[in-house]
Design a protein around this nucleic acid. Structure first.
Length: 475
RNA sequence: GGUCCCGUCGUCUAGUGGUCUAGGACAUUUGGUUCUCAUCCAAAAGAUCGCGGGUUCGACUCCCGCCGGGAUCACCA
């Protein structure tokens, strides 16, 4: 491996926003390139002009930006092998298509769409019957001169096998006659994927092609093209698919999300990268928190799994909660910005102190606001719930509350630690269990039964506000 | 249907002929810590290694068959 300079590429087509499965492939591309100090390239494969989705390219950039999978060369930053958008390279493909025809590796095909449809009518799996493959040079010239529309098809060997050593699939041997003479250049003079990918990967000096297994079956076409052109093919790695929880292929139709949607749901890029890394790969116990740099170090392209992996959101949740705990509250505050109201942002000190005590019970960034609202606005408190928690009569509970208020007013130090001490003593004297005593107070200040430790909440609310809320229950 | 790939706890996986009566992690359950939840700690449960044949003294590991799942067979990528 050390003798070849590693250059990998991710080549999305802007016909939609890449879903998380596509992004996993991008991660592997990135890791491989960085592991060998090579380059990671982003190329836009927009040869299917009919299905272009406006804005898709921007989303692709956003995904890479968010995850930190920054390309070394792409349409915006450029590079020595541009342009990096295929529709800006049309003349190049034209030249290669012509050359392939000249050397007898491809041929003109004048078959009408109707004729092709006819072929599939009886057998949906029918291959192109190679009708135009045997046209004489004269016949071709006549057609061309008449201005008849044409495509250029690859002239694949009719027998034999195409074999290669796949980085993840191992040794592969596919019969040539399983592939038909695929179209290389469409009627509109725009190349298909098959031509463009080979030409570009060659011209951009791509050393490793990591792509989904869905490309495995058409690899003989690509390999044939490399050989016809006299080029050494890149190392190929066909990575398995990402499946939904029901074992169905992850796809847009089945609600497969893009990384951007996970970001909006409050997942951290670190967690997503880790999660994707451990899907179809193994390192230690598959639960260590690794940064991108650390993943680069331990990534091993020879250990990528061959079986499809199921997307398990529970694991993502775990990794996300672990990363949230690991990050500093200051850092979390910045990442929380798009999730929290304006006024919480302004009161940075207060919000950070809430993050301090709340972060260990967060699974996603989205969980923060619902669990912290009562710090910023007066909660609606159900007195019945307070009594329920104290397990005492209204009169007795009221007595306990008066005691608590009294304690707060005269406390020598309004700190979580000291408050805890003073209240523990008072609780014992009151005859209430710790649970009854503290839960009733908890509900009184927050309206809920689940909050961070009670006295931490007191401190954040402040003495005055705490007193106000406690007094309002039985007033 | 043809061709190709895959098949170890629910999930991600370790495991390349004997150390596997199959290990770890997530999820689940229980216990401990605790003012709630969560964290943290401890433990339990969970896989006849898809099935059936071989090869071998011995197979999760090698071979064959079967079954199951997946991919692919567009002027889409």
């Amino acid at each position: 491996m050390s003798d070849t300079h590693v250059r990998t590429r991710i080549a999305p087509s802007p016909t939609g926003i890449p879903h998380i499965g596509n992004t996993r492939t991008a991660l592997f591309d990135y890791l491989l390139a960085k592991k060998y100090s090579g380059e990671f390239i982003l190329r836009i494969e927009d040869t299917d002009q009919k299905r272009l989705v406006p804005g898709a390219v921007d989303k692709i950039y956003q995904i890479h930006q968010f995850l930190g999978l920054i390309p070394d060369e792409d349409p915006v930053v450029g590079g020595s092998y541009g342009p990096y958008i295929q529709t800006q390279r049309l003349a190049i493909y034209q030249k290669y298509a012509q050359e392939l025809v000249n050397i007898g590796a491809a041929y003109y095909c004048f078959c009408s769409e109707e004729r092709l449809e006819e072929l599939h009518k009886n057998n949906p799996f029918a291959k192109y019957d190679r009708h135009c493959r045997h046209l004489t040079p004269e016949e071709v010239k006549t057609q061309l001169d008449s201005g008849a529309p044409f495509v250029i098809r690859v002239k694949l060997p009719e027998t034999g096998f195409s074999t290669w050593h796949d980085l993840v699939q191992g040794k592969l041997s596919l019969p040539n006659n399983e592939c038909d003479d695929k179209v290389l250049m469409k009627t509109n003079s725009i190349p298909t994927y098959h031509l463009a990918v080979v030409v570009d990967d060659y011209l951009m000096k791509i050393s490793h092609v990591i792509r989904g297994v869905e490309w495995m079956m058409s690899t003989p076409v690509h390999l044939f093209l490399y050989e016809a052109l006299g080029y050494k093919p890149p190392i190929l790695a066909h990575v398995p698919l990402l499946l939904g929880p029901d074992k169905s292929k992850l796809s847009k139709r089945h609600g497969a999300k893009s990384v951007l949607e996970y970001a909006a749901d409050g997942y951290l890029p670190e967690a997503i990268n880790n999660f994707l890394f451990y899907l179809g790969f193994s390192y230690k116990d598959n639960s260590e928190l690794l940064t991108l740099e650390e993943m680069v170090k331990v990534f091993d392209e020879n250990k990528i799994q061959r079986q499809n992996a199921i997307f398990d959101i529970q694991k993502l949740n775990y990794l996300n909660s672990q990363w949230i705990k690991k990050l500093s509250s200051e850092d979390l505050f910045n990442r929380l910005k798009t999730f929290i109201p304006e006024d919480w942002q302004k009161d940075k000190a207060k919000t950070i102190s809430i993050i301090d005590i709340a972060k260990e019970r967060l699974f996603t960034l989205k969980d923060f606001v619902p669990g912290a609202e009562y710090f910023f606005s007066t909660p609606i408190v159900d007195k019945k719930l307070v009594l329920e928690q104290s397990s005492r009569s209204e009169e007795e509970t009221n007595k306990w509350f008066q005691k608590a208020i009294n304690l707060l007013e005269n406390t020598k130090e309004f700190s979580s630690c000291n408050l805890h001490e003073e209240f523990a003593t008072a609780q014992k004297d009151s005859g209430l269990s710790p649970r009854e005593a503290f839960m009733s107070l908890r509900v009184a200040i927050s309206g809920r039964t689940v909050t961070p430790p009670l006295f931490d909440c007191f401190v954040i609310l402040g003495k005055e506000e705490t007193l106000k809320r406690l007094s309002s229950i039985f007033s």
